[in-house]
Structure formats: structure tokens, C-alpha cells
Design a protein around this nucleic acid. Sequence first.
RNA 1: CUCCCGUUCGUCUAGCCCGGUCUAGGACACCUGGUUUUCAUCCAGGCAACAGGGGUUCGAAUCCCCUACGGGAGGCCA
Length: 454
Amino acid sequence: MSKVRVRFAPSPTGFFHIGSARTALFNWLYARHTGGTFVLRIEDTDKKRNTPEALRVLLEGMKWMGMDWDEGPEVGGDYGPYFQSQRQPIYDEYLKKLTDAGRTYEKDGAIWFKLEGERYSTYDDYLKAEVEKVKAAPIVIDDEVRGRVERAEEMDFVLVRKDGSPGFHLVNVIDDITMGITHVIRGEDHLSNTSKHVELFNAFGVKPPKFAHIPLILKEEGSGKMSKRDKGALIEEYESRGFLASAVRNYISLLGWNPKNEREKIDIDEIIELFDFPGINKGNSRFDEKKLSALNAEYLRELNIESFTFLARPILNKAGVVSEDADEDYLQAVLTLCQPKARSLETLSELCGYFFIDNYAMDEKTGVKIAKKSDPKELLGEVLPILESIKSFDADSLKSALETHAESKDQKVFAYFPALRYATSGQGGGPDLLPMLAVMGRERVVARIKQFIG
RNA sequence: CUCCCGUUCGUCUAGCCCGGUCUAGGACACCUGGUUUUCAUCCAGGCAACAGGGGUUCGAAUCCCCUACGGGAGGCCA
């Protein structure tokens, strides 16, 4: 059996779309699973849209997701060039084969592919015109995902546009032939195009590769497939929002594929091991950011504190919560407390911002709730001297000192907790209170309580 | 308009190929309870689906047909 060669052939548009990312991912996974080769080919024939910046976005998105390519831009390979814009001589050569075989003709300045079969003229409601159709023999493909699919082309199609540029169907097939592609894994939106492609493979006298048409990702709300403008459609957006690449990759691998072992959080090595065509679903799937977030939160919590700090720092910088030269030890101490509570890096500044800034917001609901039970100022007034005078400002010392005081007042120590938390953080919830106060430090805690009491 | 593909809880899905073990399993979300000083943690429980109809069969989520619905493709976009 020949070695698997798959390709991801995006057209740089300036965005890295989640659907493209998943197509890339499935190709990459299949290559890694089979020990094959993953080729990255750039379909940059549309000169207007294909800027260096657009290419950069694409390559960075690939790298962020951890999808490395064995052949393509930056790495080269034996089947190049890997930019369609540089492959014109190859297209000319292959087009000539078709022309020599009598399978092309010119019309309206463009070059068309000539189907074989009986021709007839008919009115087409979609084209709103009288057109020539062909009774071509049906093309049968044995799709790795869908099984047998039969479809007959009924109209000649354009090979070369009248401006001289080669069309998608032509270049796609020629590139797959010349790059030795063995498996074409792509979105189901190409399933109907496959009969055109197989016609071309046949005309070239080349055995077509295997096809695997994967289901589409539907937009979260409304109908239709996910498109650039839809919420959550862009990979770079997840990156900037602080999602973990491993979580995004894990989530989208589960959109249309299933490991059948009832587990959902799976590391990439295991996904590679399990990934194969039989696990790919036929039905389209709808994107669900909540589920992505849940998975992301799981990944986030199991990060070691160094990695967590490394990722959190720029996010907190950006939110204006932590300065560039913030104290590393304090930052890490705070994050150690916050990490188990974190659901996303995106909301981290809301979760732990008060550790760093003094003008934190006071949550009104919590304020009302606390005031109902007791007078927080009175409670805080009682414990303030203790906090000011305690020898060591650590969690254990605070605990025993506060307990002793509470007993003297015939109170439970917990009676003081809500007010302490609220005064020092403005919130009703957060990390364990005593360690939290210890990390904040005496100076900060005392100042905040004084400020609160007024 | 034509052709192609699909349809299991709100969502992602297991089960379907090789019909009985499915009073349809898991996960996210949601609800309830527990733990906890609190909470966006953790634990337990709950709600909730085989699109509809016809067949085949002793028996169908599983096989066949029809309908409905969803998605995609078809104009020199890829």
C-alpha cells in the first residue's frame, strides 16, 4: 500500500475560518495517524484577496493549532511549488493533454471541458436560459465517509477563465495528481463538485484519489453553515480571547468525529491514535461555544501554575489590571488561588482583578445581602485591630486569631467572613478567604477595610 | 428549478453496517440536593430524543419505500 499523502488547500482570505481549521485538522490527524505526509498547498489564484498578510494569518493559525505540515510554504518539499500562483507551467502542460485528447473547446473567450455523451438543448430554470446539456454517464465515487455516491454531470464547465486564469476544478485536480495526493478529505460542500473532478481525473487517465467528505459546521444560531461573519467563526478570535489551543483543537476534532470511548477530553496523541474515517459522522453539526468553554475550562485548570501564569499575564496586562513590570511572586501567588476558580482566561480579570487594583467595583447585590444579616462595618471594626496587630499575616495565624475573637463574642468565625470578603474584594465569592487575605497582605487588607468603614 | 447528502435529548454524540441485551448510554447546558465562609470548583440526582407514515419481521432506533424537514452544490468563487 502506498504511503498516505493528504493536503489542506486553503485560499488565504485574511481569516482562518473554523471550518477550514477543522478540515485542516482532519487531514493532519489522518496523516499523523497513518504516518503519511501532510501537504499545505496555497490556492492563491485570486490576486486581489491573496495578500502576504492573509497568508500570515493562515500560517499562524495553523501553527497556533499545532498543525505542522511536511510540505508547503516555509518548509518546501519535492512536489512544489506549493503556491498555485507559481504553477502555471504545470497547468499549461496538463491543459494541453486535455486539448490534444479533444476534451476542450473555446467559448466566450474561456476554455471549457467537454463532457462525453448525447447533447440536447433545454431551458434551465436556475440559469434562466436555454442551455446545452449532456447525458453523461454517472460518476460513482466510493466515499470513505458516505459510502457509494452516484452523480452525473450534465453540463460542460469552465477550465480556464476568459482572463486566462485557470479555474478551481482544473487546478485542484492537476495539483492533486502532480502532488501524488492519495486521500482528499474536504467539506461536504465539495461533494457535488466531485463528479467534475472525477471526470477530469478520468480524462487525464489518472486513477482518482480516495475521497472523504466530512460534515459541515453549522452556525450556532439561525440556519446555514458557519461563515466568516458568524459569531465564533474565526480561529484568531479564540487565540486573542485566551482560549487554549489544545482545548479548541480537542473541541473541533469532536465536531463530526467521535472516538467512541465516551470520553471527550482527549489529548492530541490519543486523538491521533484513534482518528480514522469510520468515526466520522455524516450529519452536520452545530457549533456550541458553551461546550467549547467547558472543555477549555477543564484544560485551564490542569495547567501547571507556571504555564497558567505565563498565559494569564498578557491577558491581565491587556485588561489593564496588571502592569508590565508587576511582581512575579505576587502574581503567581494570586493566580495559584484563582486558577481552580477560573473558567476562562478571558474573564480572569473580573475574577481576580481586585488583587491588583484598589478601585475594584463593589457588587451591589452582595452588599445588600450582607447588610441584611448584620452590620458589616461593625463586624469589621471589631476585627480591624486584630488584623493590624497580628504578628504573622498568614492564613493559619489569621484563622486562630479570628476564631479566638469570635468565641469571645459568642460568634462563629464564619460570621465575619462575608464582610471581610466583601470589603476587600467587592465580591460575594472567590478563593478561600484566609489564604486570599494572606496573599493580599496586611497593608492592602487593612487599608481596604478602613476605606470600607469610612 | 435540478442534482447530491443528511435527520437519536436544546446542543455534541453512543447505538445503526452484523434487527432482540435500548424501559436508548455519555457529555455540555439547564434544574435540584450535598460539600464549602463564599463562589465561576467538587460530588450526587433530575429533566430531556429514535422527524412522520407505510412496509419486511415473532421482533426495527437499527433493513426497505414514501413524505417532511435540514444542509450543500449548480452562473468563468474556492
